[in-house]
């Protein structure tokens, strides 16, 4: 299963091998109609600022061409960018990995006179996708959130936990969820979900 290529980070000691790929890199697991897969590397930018400052909100919109979600547990997106609400003054932007540098530079220059923080967290998190008729049941194995379709609807997102790990859960449709998790917890989440998959299939 472990087919990743560990790479030596430049500038590090020759004997210090630092893995620059997520533990679940290229993994895919299918049981019945349910599939668990790690999505290709997504660019992630953490954004902080004051949503009551209209200049801040407008500048963000002008750069990413998506309205900043100001309501809790919501996300806004267009074809290339998704913005998640993380807190009353914190957001997360998902974009293509090759756009991160460009967006970081653009946000930095546009917001230079406004109180803000922009941080590249692309290699801090990875995103797993669980898809299938049992997706909600599988998530209930470790997530305390009310996942009833009338409560947690399609397009909703929420920061919560799965087992002992903090996650950002995004419901794309009734049978598809994206789970963003820290790289170092990926193995844990993967094993947990695979065990749950086996149990559901039985």
């Amino acid at each position: 299963m472990n087919d990743q290529q560990p790479q030596v980070a430049s500038g590090s000691r020759a004997d210090a091998v630092i893995k620059t790929t997520s533990p679940a890199y290229n993994r895919k697991r299918t049981e019945g109609d349910n599939t668990l897969v790690e999505l290709p590397w997504i660019g992630k930018i953490n954004l902080r600022g004051n949503p009551e400052d209209s200049r801040f909100v407008e500048k963000i919109k002008s750069v990413i061409e998506v309205e900043l979600p100001l309501e809790s547990n919501t996300q806004h997106h267009n074809n290339s960018v998704t913005v998640y609400w993380l807190g009353p003054d914190e957001w997360l932007i998902h974009c293509k990995i090759d756009r991160v540098q460009e967006l970081m530079a653009e946000l930095g220059s546009q917001l230079s006179s406004i109180h803000h923080a922009v941080t590249d967290v692309s290699d801090y998190y990875t995103v797993l996708q669980i898809q299938g008729p049992n997706a909600t049941t599988l998530l209930r194995k470790g997530c305390p959130l009310d996942l009833h379709p009338e409560v947690f609807k399609s397009s909703h997102c929420s920061q919560t936990r799965f087992g002992h790990a903090s996650i950002l859960l995004h419901k794309l449709d009734s049978s598809t969820f994206n789970i963003q998790i820290r790289w170092s917890y990926t193995e844990y989440l993967w094993d947990y979900l695979v065990t749950a998959l086996d149990a559901v299939d039985r």
Binding site: S72, P144, L145, T160
Partner: peptide, 11 residues
Amino acid sequence: PWCGKRDQTEF
């Protein structure tokens, strides 16, 4: 106060 009602184990 921001996210709404959640399980105790998130806090």
